[in-house]
Simulated scan of single mutants.
Amino acid sequence: MARVLFLGGLGRSGTTLVERLLGELPGVCALGEVVHLWQRDIRDDERCGCGARFSACLFWHRVGQYAFGGWQNVDIDRVHELRGLVERTRHIPRLATAVEAPDEVHEYAHFYSRVYAAAAEVSGARVVVDSSKHSALAHVLRWAPDIDLRVVHVVRDARGVAYSWTKTVARPETDGADQMTRYSPGRSALLWNAHNAAFGLLAKRGVAVHRLRYEEFLNDPRSALLSIGDFAGLRLMPEDLGFLGDGYADLKVGHSAAGNPMRFTVGRLPLRTDDAWRHSLPRNQRRLVGTVCAPMLRAYGYPLSVEES
């Protein structure tokens, strides 16, 4: 049974950084956002985190051979069809309350379980990390009998998330031809509420969920990683965190299938609090997001106004 550490939350909450640091730990294999593997990698042949095209990456080639006898044997159209049927936010209430999931849920989850098991076998890892983030996918995966699912729910201040969604960011895997999705602050506030609430619901359904505030992770990454390691069933020693320095992390080449451009970073990565939103997000937008997200901001321990912080 594959032990999967699923990083969940709304995009721009810091999951890629958490994934990259987890990927430096012994016994861990970080896969990136597997939810995008089917289209962006298998079909579009975008670049792996190692820099090579997906079709030229030896790691992913071996995973595909082990999981499916080769990626050419994966019915991508069927994966997309199943995703539309079961892996959408609107399906979460049905997935959360069902006594038994329909066959389509099990079929869709099985595509993922085969990838996870193959990645664990090829890498020799005890834990694989999927930073797909999607709450609906986590609700699907909980039904898979061959996945030991453990969710790290990454939460970031909604106003910081909203500001990040307004920025223009090129997608390097397309050589700058495309840009990452952008949302208005109002739209991102609604999504922040919905996705975070969905992970709270997942915990109520018996799934092991560990909540991680992104700001606290940056403030003390060493303690946060040790805590996640315990949650994942890893026995970490202080020397296992030797890649962490005072305000930085030294990263090796990874094989993230998709995600934030940070997945291509190799070498020294500064670890610093990203709070530009406090002065760069217009006050009216900051107040809008704060008002829409107030109940959950308070529940997660965030101040309701910048002045309080």
Results as ranks from 00 to 15, higher is better:
73 N>F: 01
255 H>R: 04
60 W>P: 03
301 G>D: 05
119 A>Y: 08
144 A>D: 08
244 L>F: 00
212 L>E: 06
75 D>H: 09
307 E>T: 15
175 D>M: 10
237 M>P: 02
277 W>P: 08
261 P>Q: 03
214 Y>I: 09
239 E>K: 12
87 E>R: 10
222 R>N: 07
60 W>H: 06
102 P>R: 13
245 G>H: 01
142 R>T: 07
16 T>I: 01
81 E>D: 15
101 A>G: 11
100 E>W: 11
170 A>F: 08
119 A>E: 10
301 G>A: 08
76 I>L: 10
60 W>R: 09
2 A>E: 06
56 A>I: 05
221 P>H: 02
293 C>Y: 03
16 T>S: 11
12 R>W: 11
198 A>D: 04
198 A>W: 00
47 R>W: 02
220 D>R: 07
217 F>R: 00
162 A>F: 07
256 S>R: 02
111 F>Q: 10
227 S>R: 10
274 D>M: 09
203 A>K: 10
42 I>V: 15
36 H>P: 01
111 F>G: 01
88 R>M: 04
159 R>E: 03
58 L>W: 03
143 W>C: 03
180 M>Y: 13
303 P>R: 14
28 V>W: 01
280 S>P: 10
287 R>E: 12
233 G>D: 08
220 D>L: 02
77 D>W: 02
49 G>I: 04
68 F>P: 04
188 S>A: 13
44 D>Q: 14
88 R>Y: 01
140 V>C: 02
175 D>Y: 08
134 H>W: 06
199 F>L: 11
84 G>T: 14
186 G>F: 09
186 G>E: 15
236 L>S: 09
290 G>D: 05
222 R>E: 11
277 W>M: 05
238 P>H: 09
227 S>P: 01
136 A>K: 06
178 D>E: 14
200 G>F: 06
149 L>F: 05
20 R>M: 13
222 R>T: 13
252 K>Y: 04
251 L>C: 06
90 R>L: 02
185 P>L: 07
176 G>Y: 07
78 R>L: 10
174 T>R: 03
253 V>P: 03
1 M>P: 12
56 A>E: 15
100 E>M: 09
117 A>S: 14
302 Y>F: 10
287 R>G: 02
88 R>L: 07
271 L>D: 01
39 Q>G: 09
167 K>T: 15
171 R>N: 12
179 Q>F: 09
27 G>N: 12
40 R>F: 00
162 A>R: 06
243 F>N: 06
218 L>I: 15
188 S>L: 04
10 L>I: 13
144 A>T: 13
172 P>C: 11
270 P>I: 01
29 C>I: 15
168 T>H: 08
26 P>T: 12
204 K>T: 15
207 V>A: 02
292 V>I: 15
300 Y>P: 05
308 E>T: 14
297 L>Q: 12
222 R>P: 05
230 D>G: 14
77 D>T: 14
104 E>V: 14
250 D>Q: 11
127 V>R: 00
229 G>H: 02
146 D>P: 06
196 N>Q: 13
93 P>D: 09
309 S>F: 14
269 L>N: 04
33 E>V: 08
50 C>E: 11
128 V>F: 01
83 R>C: 04
286 R>L: 05
135 S>M: 05
284 N>R: 15
269 L>I: 02
161 V>P: 00
119 A>F: 06
104 E>W: 05
24 E>T: 02
72 Q>A: 12
279 H>D: 12
72 Q>N: 13
